[in-house]
Amino acid sequence: MSTGITKPEEEEETESQAVGAARAAGESAYGQARMDESEIDAANEASQRRARRAVEDADRTVELKVFRYDPEVPEKEEPRFDSFTVPFAKGMTVLDALMWARDHYDSSLTFRHSCRQAVCGSDALFVDGKQRLGCKTQVADLADEGIPGEVRIEPLPHAEVVKDLVVDMEHFYDQMESVEPYFQDEDTPDGLNEQRQSRENREKIKMSTRCIWCGACMSSCNIAAGNNEYLGPAAINKAYRFAMDEREGEDLTEHRLNIIEQEHGVWRCQTQFSCTEVCPKDIPLTEHIQALKREAVKKNLKFW
C-alpha cells in the first residue's frame, strides 16, 4: 500500500488452504482503490467535526498552551506556543490531555511517552513552571480548586530542545554512565548461592534504586544549568546506590567515592533541594548527595 511494488506472483501458485471462501470466489469488494482527494478531504473534515463536537459537548474543557519548535519546518523554526482546547474528564492527566490534542488536532505534536504509570520516565515536562511527569500529573491538581483555565506545557529547561516537548537526553545519559553505574564485585558466591544483604542495607539503598532516569532533577538544578560537567543529582544518586550497597567490597566503595568527589562531583551541590522537590519518585536526592560528602570526608579524600 505504500510502495507500489507489486505482489509476488507466487501467491497465486500457493497450494495451501486459504482462510475464507470469499477470496477464492474472486471477491473484489475488499480490494477497493484508495480514496480520491475529495473523499480524503471529507474524511478529514469529518474527523475535525467530531473533535469540535467532543469539545462542545464537554461539561468542562481545559486549555493547553504547548511549546512548539521544529528546526526543519519553516513555520515552527521560531519557537511559539499553540493552544489546544481539550474536553476535561475526571482523572485526566497532563499526558492524557496532550494525547487527546495530538490525536484530534495536530498529529505533529511531539512528546515522549510510553508506560502511562510513572515508571518509564519518558515524559518529564515543564508543566506550569515545574518539572513533572505528564502521566503522573492530574490536570485537576494544577488548580487550587476545580480545574485550571489553562495549563502551560514546555520541554524540560536546561536541555537542548529537539522538537516540541522532546529534549536531547544524551548529556543526561552520559552523566549517568560516567559513574560506572553497574555492580562490580566479581567475588560472588558459586552456583545457586546468593550474596547476603541485610534488610537494613536493602532499606538504605531502596529509595536510590527507584530512579527512572526521567531527568527532572537535572533540569531543576541551578548548578547543573551553569556547569555542564557537573554530574548532577541523578548520576550521584546512582553512585550512592552502589557505594552504599554492602554487597560491594571496601575497595570498590573507595573507588566509587573517588569518582563522585572529583571536581565536578558532590562538592558542587549547594543543597538547594530543588532536585528533591521535583523528583517524581520521592527520592531524597539531596540527602544522598550529603551522605556521600560525609563518606568522602570520613575517608579523608581531598575535596574541591
Binding site: 482462510v19 475464507g20 475488499y30
Partner: peptide
C-alpha cells in the same frame, strides 16, 4: 470477510 492483504491494493 477474507483476512490478510487486500486484493488489488498496493502491497
Amino acid at each position: 470477510v477474507s483476512p490478510g492483504a487486500l486484493d488489488g491494493a498496493e502491497p
